[in-house]
Amino acid sequence: MTNVLICIKRVPEISGEILLSDDQYSIDARHVGYTLSAHDECAIELGVGLAKDTGGHARVLSIGAAGAAEQLRYAVAVGADSATLIEADPEAFGPADVAAAIASEVRQAQMSFELILVGNDAADTGDFQVGVRLAYQLDRPVLTGINTAEIRDATVLARGAGPQGVDVFEIPLPALIAVQEGGVEPRYPSIRGRMKAKRLKIEQKAAPLEPAGSGRVRLTLPEPKPSTVHMLGEGPDAAPALVDVLARSGVLNR
């Protein structure tokens, strides 16, 4: 039986223009809403599967604003068994603070989690380090960039893309894995899943520590570039003009 703790982050759902808050410290997501960090979605899919296969429990955990309950409920709708929200101002917590807060929660939780999954990097802050820092806090082996994993007795066999092919790792449990998009296909919530998520009582806690901070001074946006697109025309008639562009770019060398 492998209990799995899956740590997820609520991030602004931005696909177009990014707006900053007046003090330039944060992203203004009022008009776009929030979503799950992409790798976290895969961590949920992987973790729920592993817990199920071994008869274990899958819990999702998020450190963030009250609104992160939305992402926790989503995780429950796609199969997680329980959810914990550590309420905190996510911007006050740097990656080391997040790792320390999760570690504290793991140490005091009633349940023991043989496997902890995190997303490889958050879609917004892109720090690439929470998993590794958490592993040091808990004195566990850690892998990052992992696409798929299976539990074999007291070890976890994991695969991730390497420079020469697929890197295969085998590490003892308890362990920590940072999951990367590409190995599992996150499922969509079923109606039953949604119902379960709606009824679920999320365990709410206060942050166990004062954060040291992320070091953020402020955010900046790249200079907006005026469009310099050269329209080649409309429809199939424009095809020769495009082929001319390819020829000028020197890519028609045959």
Binding site: G215, R216, L219, T220, P222
Partner: peptide, 16 residues
């Protein structure tokens, strides 16, 4: 200065 939001924005960050 480092990329955040996948490179769509930048963060000025103090590295301690």
């Amino acid at each position: 200065s480092r990329q955040v939001m996948g490179g769509a924005a930048f963060e000025q960050m103090r590295v301690d």
